[in-house]
Write a protein that binds this DNA or RNA. Structure first.
Length: 220
DNA sequence: GTCCAGGGCCTAC
DNA sequence: GTAGGCCATGGA
């Protein structure tokens, strides 16, 4: 919590997810896999302009049409298929009704969604937390990198190990999980990139191995 | 030109 | 269970 408090004090509430509707959150969660968010925004704008920013519209549209609009997000052919896979699951299983889907038990729903092609651990947790308001902690590349550099975890840990690390130490609070992950992503983008970390001004600088140990921007 | 960004799937060992 | 290849854009 000390870490979270520092991030909150430095950055303020992040007000995530960047998206208005649950459909948009889910679509964004799939599109953002291994790509810069700026590219996702372009794709989201394209989908909106063509009336395809709802799961219903995605369900009706063809893969080539979707793929053409989401090209900036890399892997666009796979992602177009994945979007349709999710929409197909939603309509086949829950009649296209997210309220019904999210009324299922969190653990069961998580397993169901993981079985959908293209929905992995981070994506399912993002959907559950940010679209479904379920208390699950989202782990991403920034989370692993930052907490490894802080010396509190190891980048080799599995997704599940990281998830348990956080969930065993934090209250089961949806709002906390929501903003903590958002803070981590912001910190990662601004100060903790894979190479050339912008340590100057990082609110965790004095706690971070990467910053204090001389690798490579240490202050000795 | 090089590096990298809010993964996931499949296959091989 | 895990390491490695694949997918394949755009900005710094």
């Amino acid at each position: 919590m000390e870490i979270y408090r520092r991030l909150l004090a430095a950055f303020g509430h992040r007000r995530w997810w960047p998206g208005q509707t649950r459909d948009e959150v889910i679509i964004g969660a799939i599109l953002t896999q291994n790509v810069a968010w700026a590219n996702v925004e372009t794709a989201i704008d394209n989908l909106r302009e063509h009336g395809l920013l709802t799961l219903k519209a995605v369900h009706r549209a063809g893969i080539p049409e979707i793929a053409a609009l989401i090209r900036p997000t890399r892997f666009y052919n796979q992602k177009a298929q994945n979007l349709k896979q999710f929409a197909g699951f939603l309509f086949d299983t829950y009649g296209g009704d997210l309220d019904v889907m999210f009324s299922q038990g969190t653990d069961e729903l998580r397993q169901e969604l993981l079985a959908v092609r293209g929905i992995g651990e981070e994506t399912v947790d993002s959907i559950l937390l940010y679209a479904g308001k379920k208390a699950v902690f989202v782990i991403d590349a920034y989370t692993k990198r930052i907490f490894a550099r802080l010396g509190l975890a190891d980048e080799k840990w599995s997704y599940r190990a990281y998830r348990e690390f956080f969930m065993q130490r934090l209250d089961r609070d949806v709002d906390l999980y929501n903003d903590y992950h958002a803070q981590i992503v912001h910190l990662g983008r601004e100060y903790c990139r894979k190479s050339e970390p912008g340590c100057t001004g990082c609110p965790l600088n004095d706690l971070c191995r990467y910053c204090v140990s001389g690798l490579p921007h240490g202050r000795l």
